[in-house]
Nucleic acid binder design. Sequence first.
DNA 1: CGAACACTTGACAGCCCTCAACGTGAGTGG
DNA 2: CCACTCACGTTGAGGGCTGTCAAGTGTTCG
Lengths: 251, 251
Amino acid sequence: MSSGVMFPRTDASILADDGDSFTFCSTCAFSQACMSSGMDKSALAELHVLVEHIGPLRAGEHVFREGDPFGAIAAVRAGTVKTYLIDADGREQVLGFHLPGEVIGLNAIHDDRYPCNAVALDTVMLCRFSFPQIALLATRLPNLQQHLFKLMSRDIGVASLFAGDHSADERMAAFLIGLSRRLALRGFSPRRFQLTMSRTEIANYLRQAPETVSRVLRRFERDGLLAIKQRDVEILDLPRLEALALTILRH
Amino acid sequence: MSSGVMFPRTDASILADDGDSFTFCSTCAFSQACMSSGMDKSALAELHVLVEHIGPLRAGEHVFREGDPFGAIAAVRAGTVKTYLIDADGREQVLGFHLPGEVIGLNAIHDDRYPCNAVALDTVMLCRFSFPQIALLATRLPNLQQHLFKLMSRDIGVASLFAGDHSADERMAAFLIGLSRRLALRGFSPRRFQLTMSRTEIANYLRQAPETVSRVLRRFERDGLLAIKQRDVEILDLPRLEALALTILRH
DNA sequence: CGAACACTTGACAGCCCTCAACGTGAGTGG
DNA sequence: CCACTCACGTTGAGGGCTGTCAAGTGTTCG
């Protein structure tokens, strides 16, 4: 079992930077930090120098594995990354699905090791940031420091979202609405999208049996909440779905 | 319903600093940052200037409430702080119990509002850190910045600990072992301690009914895992309790 | 001493997990 | 082009864990 691709490296898997960093990074998690008011051109340049473009990774390739020494965080540029743990019984516990623009690895700072596995669900492109380097840069760029704080602060809240004891329906609705909103943030359609993960992976995320996931989705379809064929989802009754999700998402 | 005590203030509720900051702060969450190698005396002094001692708060007094504008984080100096949400059905969802040496408010950075309530369970003393000020200081003290990153990174992991679907027994064991270890970290006995929260509050934390909490504790007692009288806990069979907790705590 | 609250214990029911079987779609090789 | 395979997904039956409801006991505090 080989390790991930996040170890310090300067080999072929790092793409040469293109000549159009601005548009390339416009959907990146750090774009707000980069483009926002206070950051001047030289600062932007410093951040760009720091980035290593990694990929494409194919489905099943690991970004990092539990226990790997921590050295870098990464922003998803394209594709979906799944973070997960294998518990004592050998069952997979999915911690999150990470879409373009989202950052992974922030939970590894604490004990200098990645506390979970991260794997590509489809073709994935990443921007790798050496953490010591970006932390150092953050001491000179308050906007960047603030942005890192916010990213981490948000993850604290996200992690506790699905911690409550809610019904299978509510969990599924919250999952779909959450996905829809995050996709919308990056310019994708919030009503029609493709699931990049299997029913089983959704189940492992929502702490349910795959059979339950399947049954709930079918019932949602019968009730006119959505249409789903394979992994193609179309939300038909957004208000009702949001009402279900409300108990978890809170707004 | 009055708001919490975390708003910017320079009134009587802030204690004058005592003359013995060193020992006073020795159990603080920032003590590692303060005392650790790289931080010189002047840096230590700067951090101390920034602290506002708040309290004592009595049981039931709120530190902050959901929606309050974010301005500061706080380290618990004494007592226990419970963070919680009230869901749409009016039911309490406990996010965490925070012991001396632990920091609250880190999840509020993201959207500049506290996303939950924080209330004192007993007599609580706090150290308040204005976030803009400590963030500014962190740009000059890399050790402090790193410490903040680590605190937040840890909270991400803690929040997902109890997210898995585990049995009532495992959840309770993990709760007790976690408590025991955190108390031990601060110099308290890991085998005998007092619960500062009610059965109902434990239940709301573990996402169970209070009756289930009661039953599990009684069964643990019958099985010789622990002795419990009211809120006094004595762990009798640490290995077996740890074995139960292992599926959640992972080590 | 009484009231309010916390805790315990029992009976019952419901949600969802488990187990099992079947259907479906994509990819492969003949 | 078709049969085959295999993973994924769906559907049904049954059971267990834990939530709900109810009643009783113990504790604290005015």
